[in-house]
Write a protein that binds this DNA or RNA. Structure first.
Lengths: 183, 183
DNA sequence: AAATATATTGTACAATTGTTCAATAAAATA
DNA sequence: TATTTTATTGAACAATTGTACAATATATTT
């Protein structure tokens, strides 16, 4: 299976737009392989040649989104540094802006029904940023735990945000974080 | 459907022990309804009278485990307060001991393939403990975010623990946490 | 342009799913 | 104990899944 083969590209494009369409009508977990193939005008055998289940297609979407998260996190950031007189953390605020940008996808990622794999993709990405303040280097094992602690704490905020249906702005979320870190 | 009916109790007992047996042989996501019913010696129609999918049975297990977590968290705690000369947080250490106690279940809960619903059950339980230091009462919204932040931070540690195959002891985990909180 | 490689198709198949329903068995209730 | 209630069974059904394969179509390579 050569992912540069034009046939493969075309097939995957069809499947991708088919899934995008179906997601407007029903939740990911309700979409059948048969249904997706019909919408994409491809043979079911072709689907199983590339994927195992519908969720794998969504995973491909989310892999792209993770690339964007990595990219936007590493880009120089030109954003207002203040909101309501509070200083914004220039590192984490990019995460919140990223989430807001892909709000519709994260509503799926954080839903109860889907597999945890997307959660862990986000977790590992944020974890790789190494968010733990300025406290330089620690001993190896503690550092591992600290990374997981910090990354998942941020995701805890995002879960709460998700449960508020992403009502707050990204900047407001960052203010919440700053306030928590000040405690 | 009366859950006190002896027939229901017997049926659920059979299904429960059938699932326990099958889980020794294969992962949760590979267990079919048909297979579970054969193992439990009950009719497939009976299964669908009580559940929707195999995961619902595991959810019943986990609901009991969440009750135990709540219970052990509220019990007076008689445990050594020191390890390697470090003070242990008497609140959080119970969570770690609880996880260790049900290690086998949490290996399922934290696995990539299963639905996120178990994760959220744990999250909501830990969140309800209100772990945020001694900083008294804050404004309503910040408090919501703080609870989710703190609860998920702890779970971040547990995820890391899970990835180390739960090698460390509960007390060592608590030392990690204490060290992180000191930063 | 011809030869080669391989992705896609169509078909078939067994197994599982999810639902329905009347008959039956086993409870709870009077 | 007799009556009533209802959980369980078994059977049937359409739909979906997951796999296999030869035939075909459409790429890539020479």
């Amino acid at each position: 299976m050569n992912k540069h083969d034009l046939r493969v590209l075309k097939t995957k494009q069809n499947i991708h737009s088919a899934l995008t369409n179906l997601l407007k009508k029903k939740p990911l977990t309700h979409i059948k392989v048969t249904e997706l193939c019909k919408e994409a005008n491809i043979n079911r055998g072709t689907f199983y040649f590339h994927y195992q289940e519908v969720g794998d297609v969504f995973k491909e979407f989310f892999e792209e989104i993770m690339l964007d998260l990595k990219k936007s996190y590493n880009e120089p950031y030109y954003h207002t540094d203040f909101l309501n007189g509070k200083t914004l953390d220039p590192k984490t605020v990019r995460i919140f802006h990223h989430i807001k940008k892909y709000e519709d996808f994260y509503k799926i990622v954080f839903s109860q029904e889907v597999s945890s794999e997307y959660y862990y993709m986000l977790f590992d990405e944020i974890r790789s940023f190494g968010l733990e303040n300025e406290h330089a280097v620690h001993q190896g094992k503690l550092n591992n735990y600290l990374h997981s602690y910090s990354a998942n704490a941020i995701i805890g905020l995002i879960i709460e945000w998700y449960r508020h249906d992403f009502q707050e702005s990204a900047d407001e979320m960052n203010v919440h974080l700053v306030n928590i870190l000040k405690l």
